[in-house]
């Protein structure tokens, strides 16, 4: 099977606290913090978007992979906030890292699952022998409607993975996918903000797909929760990944390293992939890692990885994900509204 040759993440510097958002809308900050297990979220600057974050995360992944970018045969960027409606993010990324012109590019979109599907496809192509290396990125600068519950969580970040035919730093033991048509969250064409179905996003959507995918892949590889050192789930808030972990029989200790959402927010397509980067930052050779993404609409991709001895050689070559998360500057709601273009400007 294929493997992760290099990995990297990127987090913008700006943060806004739950209290700052709640203050503007007259909401009860403690109940949001307790209910969603969120403290703050990342906010992109006006000069940052999915393309810029993808390039920076990929620089970190390339530093760890130590390969010639010209040998990358596929560049796939998964996001629900691609800067262009029509013009690929992948070609800019490929050009910026020096992977052009003999490379296949595609932009993926599947709510919060677009990043893991880029990984999924790269692994398939590497296994098939169609490419030597593939680049899979999950990145988003998602928007929640003002005062909506999503405004407290919709954040920005990116994770990048170089996938190859060798085991690299983490060998792919197996993959699995679980999909149904479930209208829990969506954004129609030309709409600025997404809509969601409230509590319907929980049991029949997030929890059903993640538990089904996790149980499906564990049965496929004949493993139990106790066989894994770590587990990473999609993190729409702080609470859901903890709850689904408990439902499946995982401990808090197994979830903890990749549980970034309380101080990062939901980076959508970057969410579980960024959790995986933070987990690889602390994993030891021989550790087994389960990752299960979730994208509304709806589906989950499942991956079982076995960490190799190579991890100790490369993890400190680029910044660790939690180091990136610790570099921050708090901004007020007015600055946030300006940065996220929530203010109507004159012509």
């Amino acid at each position: 099977m294929a493997g992760i040759i290099g990995y990297g993440a990127y987090v913008p510097r700006n943060r806004i606290k739950v209290e700052e958002i709640a203050k503007v809308w007259g909401a009860d900050a403690p109940s949001y913090k307790r209910g969603l297990m969120l403290q703050e979220k990342s906010v992109p600057s006006p000069d940052q978007d999915v393309i810029t974050m993808s390039v920076e995360a990929t620089k970190h992944a390339l530093a760890r992979a130590q390969i010639d970018p010209a040998r990358i045969g596929a560049v796939y960027v998964g996001s629900e906030s691609h800067p262009y409606a029509v013009k690929p993010s992948g070609t800019v990324l490929a050009e910026a890292i020096g992977a052009t012109p003999e490379v296949h590019c595609a932009d993926f979109e599947f709510a919060c699952k677009a990043g893991s599907e880029a990984m999924f496809v790269c692994m398939g192509l590497a296994d098939a022998g169609s490419i030597e290396y593939g680049l899979a990125v999950g990145a988003d600068t998602s928007q929640g409607a003002p005062s909506d519950a999503l405004e407290y969580s919709a954040a920005a970040g990116a994770a990048s993975f170089i996938i190859g035919r060798d085991p690299g730093v983490a060998k792919v033991i197996d993959t699995y996918a679980f999909m149904t048509d479930t209208p829990d969250f969506w954004r129609r064409s030309y709409m600025h903000y997404p809509r969601h179905a409230g509590r319907f996003t929980g049991e029949p959507a997030y929890f059903k797909h993640i538990t089904s995918c996790a149980n499906g892949i564990m049965e496929k590889v004949n493993m139990k929760p106790k066989d894994f050192a770590y587990v990473v789930f999609h993190q729409p808030n702080g609470k859901f990944p903890q709850r689904v972990g408990k439902m499946l029989g995982f401990t808090k200790e197994q979830i903890e390293p990749g549980w970034l959402s309380p101080t990062l927010g939901n980076t959508y397509s970057g969410s579980s992939p960024m959790g995986l980067t933070a987990t690889l930052d602390v994993a030891k050779p021989g550790d087994m890692i389960l990752m299960v993404s979730y994208g509304s609409g709806a589906g989950s991709d499942g991956f079982v990885f076995e960490v190799t001895g190579k991890i100790d050689e490369v993890r400190n070559v680029a910044p660790r994900t939690r180091e990136l998360l610790d570099k921050k500057k708090y901004i007020e709601y007015g600055t946030y509204a300006k940065y996220r273009r929530k203010i109507r400007m004159g012509e």
Partner: peptide, 16 residues
């Protein structure tokens, strides 16, 4: 760092 330098209005290209 790789950043967006400017936008050609609301409908033009993004310059990185």
């Amino acid at each position: 760092e790789f950043r967006k330098i400017r936008e050609e209005g609301q409908a033009g290209i993004l310059c990185y």
